[in-house]
Computed example of a mutant assay.
Amino acid sequence: MTIKVAIAGARGKMGIEAVHTVIKREGMELVAILDYKQVGQTLADLDIFPENYKVPIYTDFCALVEETKPDVLVDLTNPHAVYEHTKQALVHNVRPVIGTTGFTDEQLVELKELAASKKMGCIIAPNFAIGAILMMKFAREAAKYLPNVEIIEMHHDNKLDAPSGTGLKTAQMIAEVRDPKGQGHPNEKEMMQGARGAEFEGMHIHSVRLPGLVAHQQVLFGGEGQLLTIRHDSFNRESFMSGVTFCIERVLDMEDLVYGLENII
């Protein structure tokens, strides 16, 4: 069986890598691109792709589904568009694989109920890198024994959301095994607002945004006379592609929404 794939966000750095990956992947066919701008008739019209990439570009999702009938939509767009793309995909019986973060808790509940009602798979992955998934799993295990935790996540300076989906997901996973507790001196005072970062159940999350970075995170656990650091680095976007292809194949066998690859790996 050949899996028919559509991609939203093909002009972004992750999207470009995903286009090349799906086109070259045996058992997959890239049938359409969803783009909010009319940038050309096919990918071949764009300078960033080879001339033989004749995949059609659509600005209207309904037309895309009717004419190309994809099995899976891979969304690599931005937090402003991803919720609507995910919902529309499920409504039109296309299984979403989402690599964009920025969902609210209410949106996730709604999408989970929609996927369950239609018995359709949907994967929302704050991070597609297998090493990052293992980092989060190891961090959850370490928090059972070292509950004083701080997270430092570092990304490129064009990232829109802070903290990152990976940073927030890590904190949520740690919270599953850690009782909420304040950290630092009970009377500490920020001399500059935000100096201690965002707070999640007493944990602090710090977001770094600099050119030259891709996606990096370290989770620091402090104990008496010791420090444990669990770190993952993605040096290029190729590191995410094995997770993308895994999700495209896996989502076809699912009947509900899964948030985080740690739940299926």
Results as ranks from 00 to 15, higher is better:
Lys4Gly: 12
Gly9Met: 04
Arg11Gln: 10
Lys13Asp: 09
Gly15Lys: 02
Ile16Pro: 02
Ala18His: 01
Val19Phe: 08
Val19Leu: 06
Gly27Arg: 06
Met28Glu: 13
Ala32Asn: 01
Leu34Trp: 04
Gln38Arg: 12
Gln41Ile: 15
Asp45Val: 11
Ile57His: 01
Glu67Leu: 15
Pro70Tyr: 05
Val72Asn: 02
Asn78Arg: 05
Tyr83His: 11
Ala89Asp: 07
Asn93Leu: 15
Val94Gln: 04
Pro96Leu: 14
Phe103Val: 09
Thr104Leu: 15
Gln107Ser: 12
Leu114Glu: 14
Cys122Thr: 11
Ile124Trp: 03
Ile124Thr: 04
Phe128Ser: 06
Lys137Gly: 05
Ala142Val: 15
Ala142Ser: 09
Ala142Thr: 13
Leu146Gln: 03
Pro147Phe: 13
Asn158Gly: 14
Ser164Lys: 04
Thr166Phe: 12
Gly167His: 01
Ala171His: 00
Asn187Val: 14
Ala195Phe: 12
Arg196Thr: 14
Gly197Asn: 06
Arg209Gln: 10
Leu210Thr: 03
Val214Ser: 07
Ala215Pro: 09
Gly223Cys: 11
Glu224Gln: 13
Ile230Gln: 06
Arg231Tyr: 08
Asp233Trp: 06
Asp233Glu: 14
Arg237Ala: 12
Met241Asn: 12
Phe246Ser: 07
Leu252Asp: 01
Leu252Gln: 11
Met254Gly: 02
Leu257Trp: 02
Val258Cys: 06
Tyr259Ala: 10
Leu261Ile: 06
Ile265Arg: 05
